[in-house]
Design a protein around this nucleic acid. Structure first.
Lengths: 218, 218
DNA sequence: TCTTTTCATTTTGTATTCATAATTCAAGAT
DNA sequence: ATCTTGAATTATGAATACAAAATGAAAAGA
């Protein structure tokens, strides 16, 4: 049992940030909807103070828009935002790939590889939701292996803003096949610990993802 | 005159975020110091509520650390943080360079070039503070020319975390000379609108800056 | 009928209050 | 003397209160 870490109860506003962020990303709080302050307070059993603190934080992250004297709205997912965010995510993932090749443990590498094989099986089985889960795991594992908390923080922020687009547009089967092919190259680069190549592949992968989203959303 | 944007008085917490961030970056609020909540409230003439909202936002940005039931402290500038942040800033500036080459107006390009010439003059004159100001302007102008608000937002956040290091370590004259040389190459790439080259130069410039900081801080 | 105006209601931003946890400091124990 | 102990004080987190602004609905005017 760990007796060295000073035990610290998370404050209400922190929990609220986490839960609201999740609700927004999952679409439980819909884009452009007004944030029902009173209702949330009642449901969550907290007063307005910590809830409003959480909203300020989420506004700073771009998930919520504050309108003076008119409360908060869930921010919309616009094409412009996606077009701005994806290139940034791309270079961050690219960097993560480089760093991961340099600092990942062998165990981490083999975990990423294993998750890839899972993912390929889900693709064969046509199980989209398991595929997406595996895909998220892979990107998260890569990010963790990069050993750079600052990078991870900004990546997480951007991901949360962009994740919601998945709810708006189902990618085509042909794009799915393409993405899988790209991942076959990616996993090869991971196994070879080829940082520059992995970086380039990830950047290209993200840019293709954006192009596919664009097509699906117009 | 702009008549489309609905005029909106900034809320107290927003103003506080701005002012506190500035105070932290400029060193008026020193790293590791406790945030004097009561004192700030009195000086700024606001109640605790908006101040605490601002602190939550700054904590989310990493400029402040919240300790449960023990208030807030200004976060320390650690070598680990700089080592994590600089590579991220480097890829963001690299991306900004690429994008700027593609989307900057001729006027923006010539402004960046002009500011470079100013900066070189300040270097000749040995005027460090004017040099730094011009340097900041150049990076800001480049970022603006990239036309990507998401990129700009994350760049600003990271810059604020890292700016403070400048107060801790004066770079050597030899590094200054080096940096100027690097900028001579950078401005050439800007004039030529050579995106890939500018991107590579900026990334290298940032990595060298980190190395210089490392040396100066040990 | 369709606007415009008025006024009650609700919502919002900020201030204030309150309960609890941390800190301080003096008194007693070692 | 130094180290504990515990009550008094202060600071903090969260709830509540309050004033100002926005919203909505009914009444007055076109």
């Amino acid at each position: 049992m760990n007796l060295s870490t000073p035990l610290t109860r998370p404050s209400l506003h922190e929990e609220l940030v986490t839960r609201l962020r999740q609700a927004i990303v999952e679409g439980a709080l819909e884009p452009d909807a007004k944030v029902p302050e009173r209702e949330l307070c009642e449901n969550l059993g907290v007063s307005r103070t910590p809830l409003r603190e959480a909203l300020k934080v989420l506004a700073n992250e771009g998930l919520v828009v504050l309108q003076s004297n008119r409360g908060a709205r869930i921010s919309k997912v616009t094409m412009e935002e996606l077009e701005d965010a994806f290139p940034v995510i791309a270079v961050l993932e690219g960097l993560a790939g480089e760093l991961a090749c340099a600092s990942a443990t062998d165990k981490e590498i083999s975990h990423i590889v294993a998750r890839h094989h899972d993912m390929f099986r889900y693709y064969e089985a046509g199980d989209r939701s398991a595929y997406f889960q595996a895909n998220r795991d892979i990107h998260a594992a890569l990010m963790a292996a990069a050993r750079n908390p600052v990078l991870a923080q900004h990546y997480a922020m951007l991901s949360s803003r962009v994740e919601r687009a998945r709810l708006l547009a189902n990618v085509s089967d042909s794009r799915w096949a393409e993405a899988v092919e790209e991942h076959r190259e990616i996993v090869k680069a991971v196994e070879a610990r080829d940082g520059p190549r992995l970086s380039a592949l990830l950047r290209a992968h993200l840019n293709n993802k954006l192009a596919a989203l664009k097509k699906a959303l117009t």
